[in-house]
Design a protein around this nucleic acid. Sequence first.
DNA 1: ACCTGAACACCGTTCAAGT
DNA 2: ACCTGAACACCGTTCAAGT
Lengths: 226, 226
Amino acid sequence: MAQQPGPRADPRPPWTRQRVLRAAIDLADQDGIESLSMRKLSQLLGGAPMSLYNHIANKDDLLDGMIDAVFSEIELPSGEDGWKTAMRQRAISIRTILSRHRWAIGLMNSRTSPGPATLRYHNAVIGSLRDAGFPVQLAAYGIAALDSYIYGFALQEQALPFPTPAQTSQLAQAMLEQIPTDQYPHFAELTIEDVLQPGDDHGAYEFGLDLLLDGLEQSLHKQTTH
Amino acid sequence: MAQQPGPRADPRPPWTRQRVLRAAIDLADQDGIESLSMRKLSQLLGGAPMSLYNHIANKDDLLDGMIDAVFSEIELPSGEDGWKTAMRQRAISIRTILSRHRWAIGLMNSRTSPGPATLRYHNAVIGSLRDAGFPVQLAAYGIAALDSYIYGFALQEQALPFPTPAQTSQLAQAMLEQIPTDQYPHFAELTIEDVLQPGDDHGAYEFGLDLLLDGLEQSLHKQTTH
DNA sequence: ACCTGAACACCGTTCAAGT
DNA sequence: ACCTGAACACCGTTCAAGT
């Protein structure tokens, strides 16, 4: 009986790269990327810091793996409902995922050795536009514009120190009270009339997104009718 | 004579907050934000780590000061040539400045105690749109869209590990050789036909920027003619 | 093949002591 | 008022030693 402890009995399952990555992502999700240290991670897994190096090369490799895991969470564009729908779904999917993995935003585009999920994803995104008739150059520009917007918006959302709109409003209120509002009337007005209003600003995201998508559609028509 | 050493003679001028911030920015510009440590900074200034704390409260305060200094470098919108020109100049100005201060990109929107230069800047940007007839809500959405694009584009440029297009092409070439290109044909095609071509892609930045500005102009007309 | 303790060269910051 | 050495609680990683 002691030889067959069953899957739940062992408090310390053997480490794998998968398990290490999962624990690292959970830690970063909960406590922020600045709390992710090799020492804390090993402690969370119930072992010594150096044991990690049997499954990952170093911290950089750890980050590469974490980012590839995040890319694997993004829904691939289906290609059935047209490029515009595909790009809108992509934008919304990334926003949702990055709200769970706020630490990932600055890293999604800065890893120089992309994993398989990252490559599959990028290939599908480009393919969605190319199949819809986008010339290579316009596809490149279009994706750069959309990605800039998507990651930039996420960057600004991540900058909010609290996840809920109510808490954010409260902080904005406190910030505003420390500022000489008569010197910055426009700033004060916009903060009061917009930032202090609750609501998760789904509107703001789609507003800019649609400006880009509609503009891209016009660019596509111009290029193809010439 | 020894009492009057002249400005160049003293190798260790007294530290001031100004001088500390300047040295910190220079260090971050040259070696990256991860190299900016209190210890290295104090060494650069020719003193002990703890001496820094006579001029700044802690590292967070140091970052606050650095970011406010970066905001002070951005040209304020003049307001004479219309909001569209003002916003385009703002976008180009930020891109130029963030190429010098790549470490700043992720921090511009995440500091919760904005300094005077930051407040003056934001107030001027909002004012530029409000004076042109933008309702508060549309100004807020418009700035959010533009800022997302501006910072997101900078984030992607910063992600490039080398500052010059030639070096970047070379790295992309090396990356591409390690990838099974037949599995990712769209990715390979775009990399070869776009990324590997030299040129600093001024075009890509203005392309997305104009999509947003033209779209914003249409939104403004719609709102004001109703 | 996988794990690990000790050690090294780093961090930011507190505290107490100097001038 | 400004500076600083020692100390504390942290880092990532190398190396040598275990099973």
